[in-house]
Simulated assay, not measured.
Amino acid sequence: MTSFTERTKATLRETLLDAAADLLPDRGHQGLRMADVAAKAGVSRQTVYNEFGSKAALTQAVALRVAAEFLDGIRCRFEDAESLLTGIRGAVVYTIEHARENRLIAAALGTEAGEDLLPLLTSRGEPILTAAADLAAGQYLALEPRLTPESAALLAETVVRLSLSHLVLPTHSASEAADSILAVLAPAIDQFVHNGVKREGQS
């Protein structure tokens, strides 16, 4: 495959994902039709099937692209952080604020059409949640090397799940949610760091 062909194929895929992402918030997964995605993108329905194979695969691809955008944003917050706690806080605030502004996620959390999109973030969203937790764990270790990989992974999974709970049940602002998550995690982080230092002293 030539580089021109690769670029053309990538552009087509992005065009189809853009079309699906624009339709999904109003129609949900069940109401989305491949023919409508094709019409919006200006291609044939067969072209959509050739690229993604099924409507489920197309919807999942849209969700994974949204997740990639979030992961890039989270990575930037950690890279600019002065400490582990400020990095976690910045990442949580960004995640919640960006999610509430994203049409697809807002629909999944708050509209009738989005009810069948919610599992992409929860029960069927394991690849997305795992990617977010893996990224966070790596950033935690970079900012606080006294953590063990196991404790970093546990902290990261906890932050991801708590952040998701604040998205599903939005009773606080993003800043308030981040502060409450840190209030719970700060003592645990101190304990993990202390245990890590203790083990180093014993070795």
Score class of each variant (00 low, 15 high):
121 L>G: 04
111 T>D: 09
121 L>H: 02
116 D>R: 06
119 P>R: 09
135 L>T: 11
124 R>P: 00
111 T>S: 15
132 A>M: 12
106 A>S: 15
115 E>H: 13
119 P>G: 07
126 E>S: 13
108 A>C: 09
131 A>V: 03
126 E>C: 00
135 L>R: 08
115 E>W: 04
132 A>C: 13
104 L>D: 01
116 D>I: 07
105 I>K: 02
118 L>P: 01
121 L>W: 11
107 A>Y: 04
121 L>V: 11
114 G>D: 03
134 D>T: 15
116 D>T: 07
108 A>Y: 03
134 D>E: 12
109 L>I: 10
111 T>C: 12
125 G>K: 01
104 L>S: 03
106 A>R: 13
122 T>F: 02
103 R>F: 08
119 P>T: 07
136 A>L: 15
119 P>H: 06
123 S>Q: 09
131 A>T: 07
130 T>M: 09
105 I>E: 00
133 A>F: 04
121 L>R: 06
125 G>Y: 02
114 G>L: 03
114 G>I: 04
122 T>N: 07
129 L>K: 11
121 L>D: 01
111 T>L: 08
128 I>K: 00
131 A>E: 10
110 G>V: 09
125 G>T: 04
123 S>W: 06
124 R>K: 10
108 A>S: 11
130 T>Q: 14
135 L>H: 07
135 L>E: 12
103 R>T: 08
120 L>A: 09
120 L>S: 05
120 L>N: 04
118 L>C: 06
120 L>K: 00
131 A>G: 13
136 A>F: 09
127 P>M: 03
122 T>Y: 01
122 T>S: 07
121 L>A: 13
115 E>C: 07
113 A>H: 10
116 D>F: 07
106 A>H: 14
103 R>V: 10
136 A>P: 01
131 A>P: 03
108 A>G: 10
112 E>G: 10
129 L>W: 03
134 D>N: 14
117 L>G: 01
123 S>A: 10
115 E>N: 10
120 L>F: 04
136 A>Y: 05
128 I>C: 00
129 L>G: 09
119 P>D: 01
131 A>K: 06
132 A>N: 02
117 L>R: 05
118 L>A: 12
109 L>C: 10
133 A>S: 15
124 R>I: 05
119 P>Q: 03
112 E>R: 14
125 G>Q: 02
119 P>Y: 09
132 A>H: 01
111 T>A: 11
106 A>I: 00
114 G>M: 10
130 T>F: 10
110 G>N: 14
110 G>T: 12
124 R>Q: 15
122 T>E: 09
103 R>E: 15
123 S>E: 14
114 G>H: 06
111 T>Y: 05
134 D>V: 13
109 L>E: 13
111 T>W: 08
114 G>V: 04
134 D>M: 06
131 A>Q: 04
135 L>M: 14
